[in-house]
């Protein structure tokens, strides 16, 4: 059983590493962006699918990650500008963890719709700050993001975005996915599941519900920060519209599309969502119409998401217990 997984993993890895050589340049770029969103969605799911807390404002952390990178690259900093992607990632992790800790401490006192709306409030405050602190954040212009050095090497414009950075993003993705897998299967991860099922009972059996929720929140914030930090150099530009309640809706959609009760759900969801969006945008300017319809369709027909649906099918196929 275990060797089967390992073989599948190796095949997947091989496939992922030769992909940029065969697909068109633009799609390598799209794929890299997709992986960034997959990290973001994966982190979001520990809060949403695992702990059962719906935040309608998680684009806050995507924005913090992206703006941290952009701000540290500003020409105004002179000799203190940072171009090393590793340091930038570290900085994004630190800032998103700090903000996540602060905001989380205020938010985790509530659940359900209250939790969602309080987060929405915070993302809009952050959005208003980005807009109004014109001199630091560039207002609606946003900030340009330059090409960082990866492992000490700086590559030219096109190679970076359409080839080399893909591997960097992929490597980070594999690391954080492994870490998340360990978290899911740790006692802490299982306790989160208990909290989702029934917070009151979880408290009775001695789980420190508040602290665990906060921990889950901070983890999801850090993943959002990493996703944003990796996404920013790919995009080459950040603007306040990265962090609004509308973009926060996207990550919820990714999770539900892919299946929020499945570990791989958010990854599949991010892939599906972003590529669907890219493809629909290619054909029509009415892409949000189709996106909206598909969101409704998924909620009504596949509430378990793609992965939820697949895993029930698979289980039936193999005749295992559901």
């Amino acid at each position: 059983m275990k060797t089967k997984y390992i073989i599948a993993l190796i095949i997947g890895l091989l496939l992922a590493s030769v992909l940029p050589l065969v697909i068109p340049k633009y799609y390598t770029y799209v794929l890299s962006v997709t992986i960034c969103f997959a990290i973001y969605a994966l982190g979001y799911n520990i809060l949403f699918g695992r702990t059962g807390l719906l935040s309608f404002g998680h684009a806050l952390y995507l924005g913090i990650g992206a703006y941290t990178v952009a701000a540290l690259m500003r020409p105004e900093l002179g000799p203190y500008r940072i171009f090393s992607m590793e340091l930038l990632l570290l900085a994004a992790i630190v800032t998103s963890a700090i903000v996540g800790l602060g905001v989380g401490a205020l938010c985790i006192r509530y659940t359900r719709i209250f939790f969602g709306l309080i987060n929405l409030g915070f993302v809009m405050v952050w959005h208003a700050l980005l807009l109004k602190l014109y001199h630091i954040t560039g207002g609606t212009d946003g900030l340009p993001v330059y090409i960082p050095s990866t492992l000490g090497i700086t590559l030219p414009y096109e190679t970076f975005r359409t080839f080399s950075f893909y591997y960097y993003v992929l490597a980070v993705f594999l690391i954080v996915t492994y870490v998340m897998w360990r978290i899911y299967n740790s006692p802490f991860g299982l306790a989160l599941k208990a909290i989702r099922e029934n917070g009151v009972r979880a408290e009775f059996i001695g789980i420190p519900v508040g602290r665990y929720r906060l921990a889950a929140y901070v983890i999801s914030a850090i993943y959002g920060g990493i996703g944003g930090a990796l996404w920013a150099p790919l995009s080459g530009q950040v603007s306040p519209d990265v962090s609004t309640w509308l973009t926060s809706g996207d990550v919820v959609m990714m999770n539900i599309l892919g299946g929020m009760f499945n570990f791989a759900g958010p990854i599949v969801g991010a892939f599906l969502f972003y590529n669907l969006k890219i493809q629909i945008m290619h054909f029509t300017t009415y892409w949000s119409f189709i996106l909206g319809l598909s969101a409704i369709f998924f909620v009504l027909v596949f509430p378990g998401g793609i992965m939820g649906w697949l895993s029930t099918k698979m289980k039936k196929f193999y005749g295992q217990k559901a």
Binding site: R112, G249, L291, V299
Partner: peptide
Amino acid sequence: LFKRLYRLREEYSLLATFGLMLVFDDSLRM
């Protein structure tokens, strides 16, 4: 739509109405 949502969890109804909002907006533009 909504009749089916009452039974579902809040996050589903949030997402579905969010989708509906996008549909409304684009239909009006169409």
